[in-house]
Design a protein around this nucleic acid. Structure first.
Lengths: 131, 131
DNA sequence: TATGAACCTTCCAGCGACTGTAAGGTCAAG
DNA sequence: CTTGACCTTACAGTCGCTGGAAGGTTCATA
């Protein structure tokens, strides 16, 4: 599959896909004409990268997460430890998003401008789990 | 409060806090000696910025979100529309994180290296809600 | 078969969001 | 009154893309 199709199926611009190859996140085959040739597994990784980056994971973290899937001997304690750490991080992000959501809901439904500049929402907003 | 304390309380490096001032996200007072002077509300905003950036919102999106809190006439249809859009975005992020979490859990508990390189987890992982 | 659109390639430059370094001013403690 | 921990600005560098130029490939249509 050419890069354009990989782009369509992953949601990532071709530019970004080439960049991810430059930094070694994916390694597509090459056709005889020099075009990159993406397998289904590559597209899955690209879709994953698209989502994980949008959720605030750095490229290095994405590299680690991909390594978890690629790891040939998943019994390794290191891998398990890393996975557990990532789970905790994901839980934290979910908590923070949930709190942010509640705050916005509150803002829409019950906070009508009169209670600022000391709006309690700002406090509530910033009182989430420590980073 | 000096920038060092604002940094400690928000979790953001001083450098980043100054940068946020450069691009107009916050506007702290200045003491007579020229030092920046942060009020509690500034720190709340900084904590918010720290969290929202870590959750994958761009600086421009953060600016919009802060505007929602700062907006003097929250009745505006534009503001409400933006808030609703942000709520949908947050819901999407929560769904994606939940799915990512399930995948990692699955990986830890039941996928032991033998089923790759066609591990169904990679497929599962990349089958989330469209971006 | 040829021409043009729509792909693909590499390379290099620029931008968004920081991050590090340098050179210097301020302040509280000893 | 100096030492060290703070603060200031200014400028350069990095990370993660993103756009543009210059050119090769493929394919439908004239």
């Amino acid at each position: 599959m050419n890069i354009g199709d990989a782009s369509d199926q992953s949601g990532l611009p071709s530019k970004t896909i080439r960049y991810y190859e430059d930094i070694g996140l994916i390694r597509p085959d090459r056709a005889t004409n020099g075009y990159r040739d993406y397998a289904a597994a590559d597209v899955h990784k690209l879709r994953f990268l698209h989502r994980a980056r949008g959720l605030g994971f750095s490229v290095e973290e994405c590299r680690q997460l991909l390594a978890l899937y690629d790891d040939k001997s998943r019994a390794s304690g290191d891998v398990r430890e890393l996975t557990v750490a990532k789970l905790a991080e994901i839980d934290r992000k979910i908590r923070e998003l949930t709190q942010l959501r509640q705050t916005l809901e509150h803002l829409v439904h019950s906070c009508h401008g009169t209670e600022r500049p000391d709006c309690p929402i700002l406090e509530e907003l910033s009182d989430g789990a420590a980073p």
